[in-house]
Design a protein around this nucleic acid. Structure first.
Ligand SMILES: [Zn+2]
Length: 617
DNA sequence: AATGCCGGGTT
DNA sequence: AACCCGGCATT
């Protein structure tokens, strides 16, 4: 981690960064004031406009948007503009009229939105051509009323965004959409900006064409450095000094300092900051008892970049500069440490496993005829979210819904584990409802030694795919299925074997995995005093209904509730809401997510009108 | 009106 | 166990 490009200069650099940052902010504000509404309409930009920023005027940034052909209803016409890199106000606008587009009337649903750029990071050593420095961003503001078109979007919500931004593409796009808000007000803008490093030479991308012959064209998304801003309605950027940290955290990642000892190439590449991403979220402050999570055992994508989820323990946390998101330092059994965005952590109080991709070799636990077994994942079909697990002990392969496998062993009945957390959550009054364990699995009889019998696998796949609707629209699907991608009509689901590029830092559905340090390379685990979590009862904000598609680190829009591990010392359980009241979680469940017409994609529990086991609260 | 899901069925 | 669904609470 010490390897992040922008932390080169150590403290002094970060100083600059901050300066830069603040300056830009000011600039930004100025612009806002002077320009006022121009932003809404059509803020065009070009390099010529702002020469205020030092050394950066030479570089251009291109901003592009999704191509309509890919996401017909969810994204506005492609727009490409030129921007100015140094300037924070990289913006774009949706309302541009596209030649040849029948739909010229500007959509009321979308607005231009200026976005702060990423901290200049590598700009100083920018490369002259100004190319190769795309900024991707897309965002929209929607008002419920005028945009029914959106709601008719045939694209399965979770797949609505692409995670394919390749490293080589001149400009790529991706992102997001807000969901139509139920409320009157404008939905929050959810956007992310990615920027490719200028100094490509610095990072030795071992991969690309060279590496595995099987590398898919859509190289995994930029691994890392990720930072959040709060874009909200009035760009409150950078402010926020609420850095937080806690409990004896190693000053540094021990091995980070050791130059020779690099981690996995991929991982280091990430650190090389081939990309810098900025994720902006707005609204919705998920303030939870983060402290309470200290010491909790969780799972995170292995730092090795293999994609395998390994157990670790939360050692510390901090809120990132943008409120709303925090990162955690996780320690692993081997003594390693790594910081992760909360979005890439799996465990009580974090993400649910169902959002992640399981790579072959992943160790999982499952219950088979009343008993728990360990197994290794062989494939993961993330269309149906099913995994083929091989249970060595029985030499059998079992095809399961992902929610039917666990990363942790549980002596107790699996589903009670969940309930256990609930109890800790102070909502304990709940009934001792014995949850059923619905396992929707198809066991595949033992076979030859350890070799996967392709046919059987196929058979199993087909079996389960038959029932699922042909949801082939996700562009990203096609790339995830190396061998089976057959374009032949009626593909059967999306299965991935190890062959496909493990996107190390990119959890399955796009959440960026690791989280490199923020813009200020210095005070990582600052000596900041432990800051208590605001004791004030968490406001139950009726956040506008929004979701981010796929690629979002922040997909965790599903509000999290602090769930605690038994041994974790925790702060107030927040008796906040008057005791015995059943509070309906705000997480959207299968029914809502997939829709009635796609009932077959719901998790079993939902189909049975039971508590959803795929999207918890 | 739509969702989420508990309790209590039936197969 | 797998599955279905009435009906209530919540939004
Ligand atoms: Zn469900």
């Amino acid at each position: 981690m010490g390897a992040e490009p922008w932390s080169l200069g150590g403290g002094s650099y970060s100083m600059h960064l901050w300066l830069f940052f603040t300056l830009s902010l000011l600039l930004f504000i100025l612009l806002l004031i002077s320009c006022g509404g121009c932003m809404r309409k059509s803020a065009q930009f070009s390099a010529q406009n702002n020469d205020t920023e030092a050394k950066d005027d030479t570089h251009l940034i291109s901003i592009s948007q999704f191509d309509d052909s890919v996401f017909p209803n969810s994204i506005s016409p492609a727009t490409i503009q030129e921007g100015h890199p140094g300037s924070r106000k990289v913006s774009w606008q949706n309302d541009v009229e596209m030649p040849g587009m029948q739909d010229n009337k500007e959509s009321p649903c979308q607005h231009s939105r200026a976005l702060p750029e990423i901290p200049a990071a590598l700009d100083d050593k920018g490369n002259p051509d100004g190319k190769g420095d795309p900024v991707y961003q897309t965002a929209r503001e929607l008002t419920a009323a005028e945009c029914q078109e959106i709601s008719e979007d045939p694209i399965e919500p979770s797949y609505a965004a692409s995670d394919q931004f390749s490293l080589e593409a001149q400009r790529t796009e991706f992102i997001i959409e807000d969901d139509v808000a139920k409320e009157e007000k404008v939905a929050p803008v959810y956007a992310r900006v990615s920027k490719k490093t200028k100094n490509a030479p610095l990072l030795c991308l071992p991969s690309h064409s060279a590496a595995h012959g099987n590398v898919e064209r859509d190289e995994e998304p930029p691994p890392l450095p990720e930072k959040r801003f709060d874009l909200d309605d009035d760009f409150v950027i950078g402010e926020e000094s609420k850095q937080i940290l806690v409990e004896e955290t190693p000053q540094e990642d021990p091995r980070a300092a050791v130059p020779g000892q690099e981690r996995d190439p991929r991982s280091s590449r990430a650190d090389a900051a081939a990309w810098t991403q900025v994720t902006m979220a707005s609204v919705l402050s998920r303030r939870l008892g983060k402290r309470s999570l200290l010491g909790a055992t969780v799972h995170t994508p292995s730092p090795s970049g293999s994609g395998i989820l390994i157990p670790g323990v939360i050692q510390a946390y901090r809120l990132d500069s943008g409120k709303g998101n925090s990162s955690y330092t996780v320690s692993f059994e081997d003594g390693q440490f790594k910081e992760y965005s909360e979005d890439s952590i799996i465990g009580p109080g974090f993400q649910s496993l169902s959002r992640f991709k399981l790579y072959p070799g992943q160790r999982v636990y499952l219950t088979h005829s009343g008993r728990e077994y360990v197994g290794l994942v062989e494939q993961h079909n993330h269309l149906d979210n099913e995994v083929l697990v091989h249970v060595k002990e029985l030499d059998l392969r079992s095809l399961r819904k992902i929610e039917d496998v666990r990363l942790t062993e549980s002596r107790k009945s699996p589903r009670l584990q969940e309930q256990e957390r609930e109890n800790l959550r102070a909502t304990s009054k709940q009934t001792e409802s014995k949850r059923i364990h619905c396992s929707e699995s198809i066991d595949i009889p033992p076979r030859g030694p350890g070799v996967v019998d392709m046919d059987e696998v196929m058979a199993a796949m087909v079996l389960t795919s038959l029932s699922s609707s042909p949801l082939v629209n996700s562009p990203l699907n096609s790339s995830t299925m190396p061998g089976l991608a057959e374009s032949g009509s009626g593909s059967s689901g999306i299965w991935s074997w190890g062959s496909d590029t493990p996107s190390p830092s990119t959890p399955p559905f796009g959440q960026s995995a690791g989280l490199a340090q923020g813009g200020d390379g210095s005070d990582r685990y600052g000596t900041q005093p432990l800051l208590l979590e605001e004791p004030t009862a968490r406001k139950r904000k009726i956040s506008p209904d929004y979701r981010c598609a796929f690629t979002f680190g922040d997909c965790s829009v599903q509000p999290q509730v602090a769930l605690l591990k038994p041994h974790v010392v925790f702060a107030s359980p927040v008796p906040s809401l008057s005791g015995t009241r059943k509070i309906r979680g705000e997480a959207k469940k299968c029914r809502k997510v997939y829709g009635l017409e796609n009932r077959n994609q719901w998790c079993t529990a939902c189909r049975w009108k039971k508590a959803c086991q795929r999207f918890h609260d």
